[in-house]
């Protein structure tokens, strides 16, 4: 097998920056490696924002295409993931908006569309039954949140981004990140309480 610069970069665990520079130089395998490396996290973000695997896959594909087309604009000295996440997030918001306009649904009505797509990884189904139920309940309640609150909770609790990263990504102050996150968590906590 011929070791292309991209394969060499990948085999040496090179950074995104290395692959971005190779891709900009016309190395298609570097571009392919970048998309393969990041498509899983992009898909998960789309799934967590949209709540539906089919829409998430569409949004991810669209976002990755934009990512490839506009890679020239990207500052290779900056981390790649926030930029990709901003593309995915914008695409998801756009698709959600279109879907609501088409169906003339209220802005917060997602119930029919929000489908759990979780994995139960427990080796002991009895021991983790309650935990699994709670995860599903939190996931379902996430679909009931307003989009602004949902995306912050997803970025923090599902994607593990810091307040600073979320603030940069969404263009809101860190105080706003904290207050929206708090309201979202409090709503979910109330949903978990026994009725």
């Amino acid at each position: 097998m011929t070791l292309t610069p991209a394969l060499a970069a990948e085999s040496h665990g090179e950074s995104d920056r290395e692959l971005v520079l190779l891709a900009r130089g016309g190395d298609r395998s570097a571009l392919s490696m970048l998309t393969v490396r990041h498509r899983r996290s992009a898909y998960l973000l789309a799934l967590q924002l949209m709540g539906n695997p089919d829409d998430a896959l569409d949004a991810t594909q669209d976002a990755l295409i934009k990512f490839c087309i506009h890679l020239e604009r990207f500052d290779a000295e900056r981390p790649l993931k926030p930029w990709l996440y901003s593309i995915v997030r914008n695409r998801c918001r756009d698709l959600l908006r279109r879907r609501r306009v088409r169906r003339a649904e209220p802005i917060d009505s997602d119930e029919d569309h929000w489908r759990p797509e979780l994995v139960d990884e427990s080796a002991d189904p009895h021991a983790d039954l309650e935990r699994s139920r709670l995860r599903r309940r939190v996931w379902e309640a996430l679909g009931e949140l307003a989009p602004d609150h949902r995306e912050i909770l997803v970025l923090r609790d599902y994607q593990d981004l810091s307040y600073s990263e979320i603030s940069d990504l969404l263009g809101v102050p860190q105080g706003t990140v904290m207050s929206r996150l708090h309201r979202a968590r409090k709503y979910l906590a109330n949903q978990l309480e026994p009725s």
């Binding site: 498509r39 898909y43 896959l57 295409i65 797509e117 935990r131 609790d157 599902y158 906590a189």
Partner: peptide
Amino acid sequence: SLRDVRDIARGTAFKVPSDEMWRETARTP
């Protein structure tokens, strides 16, 4: 309660498309 919500969310695993599915749905420029 807030800690519980955070820990539950962090412990959630999601199904992701297989490599085969990515190839089937690949849409390049």
